[in-house]
């Protein structure tokens, strides 16, 4: 019944630093369940993040954890995976971290199709620094630096990942906890770059400014805006207005994985 999360969490680290209702905690639980399902040996698992509220996640987990600099998680993780391909490598981080300052590393890690699982917590905002707009803040929304409404168009992270060459791309939300671990498990099992975008909530810096009275409103929004790929297939364009798709959005099992490609380079160099 009750899930034993504690065995995966470093002693004395709870309560965590996230605000009441912050979705990052829900994602962390999903990640723990997924790592358990995949029976990942934590000694052989690197969890790498950048900077941001979401990026504080690795510090709680009992594994080889690497909290790097803002935006650079995918690049650090690439070094870890290249140097020790036998390690399981998981990246976690926020929308700002992964797609603004770290956007270049993100797309190139996707392009290489290096075997890692990247759980990107998209709360539509720079939470840690107090709610400035991110590349994922919806146009028109309010942020501390868009006092007249956000003039910027957004990134669709999942589309970006597919376009850049990731071979497993999935999306879910913090309001769909069972799907979080289900998709992360698939991502871990997938040999190649797996992106799992989890739309979550930042009640403190985004919700407050944007019509949401409470975190409950934000969670309800996630439930109503999310439409599974299956359900969407039976819906009209009109019905899909204002919704986003969840589930496995893309998978390609043909594209070679990067460390396997490099193992071939080694064979060639050694004249085998």
């Amino acid at each position: 019944m009750a899930y034993d999360y504690e065995k995966s969490i470093r002693p004395g680290k709870l309560p965590h630093i996230w605000c009441p209702g912050c979705g990052h905690g829900i994602v962390m639980k999903g990640l723990i369940r997924a790592m358990d399902t995949c029976e990942l040996d934590r000694k052989n698992t690197a969890i790498v993040s950048g900077i941001g509220c979401a990026s504080r996640l690795p510090g709680y987990l009992d594994a080889c954890t690497l909290h790097t600099a803002h935006g650079r998680a995918a690049a650090f993780a690439t070094g870890v995976k290249m140097a020790k391909p036998q390690m399981n490598v998981i990246c976690v981080g926020g929308d700002g971290d992964g797609t603004a300052i770290g956007g270049n590393h993100f797309i190139h890690a996707c392009r290489r199709n290096i075997d890692m699982t990247y759980v990107l917590m998209n709360n539509y905002i720079y939470g840690m620094t107090g709610g400035q707009f991110s590349p994922c803040t919806p146009t028109g929304d309010l942020a501390s630096t868009t006092p007249y409404g956000n003039p910027d168009p957004i990134f669709d992270i999942s589309k970006l990942a597919i376009g850049a060459g990731a071979t497993f791309v999935a999306r879910t939300t913090a309001a769909h906890p069972r799907e979080i671990d289900k998709l992360i498990v698939k991502g871990i099992q997938h040999k190649g770059m797996a992106i799992i975008e989890v739309i979550d909530d930042c009640p403190t810096t985004y919700g407050r400014r944007n019509k949401f009275r409470s975190v409950i409103d934000m969670m309800k929004r996630l439930k109503t805006e999310a439409v599974s790929v299956k359900a969407a297939a039976k819906m009209t364009a009109e019905q899909l207005e204002g919704k986003f798709l969840t589930g496995v959005l893309f998978q390609d099992t043909e594209k070679p994985e990067y460390t396997v490609q490099y193992a071939n380079v080694i064979k060639k160099a050694q004249g085998a």
Binding site: M1, Y3, I9, P15, C22, G25, I26, K29
Partner: peptide, 19 residues
């Protein structure tokens, strides 16, 4: 009814449903 929603959705590891 032990649907587990509370435990799954609690962001803070603060509620557990035991048999």
């Amino acid at each position: 009814i032990k649907c587990m929603q509370c435990e799954l959705l609690c962001p803070d590891f603060a509620i557990k449903v035991h048999d």
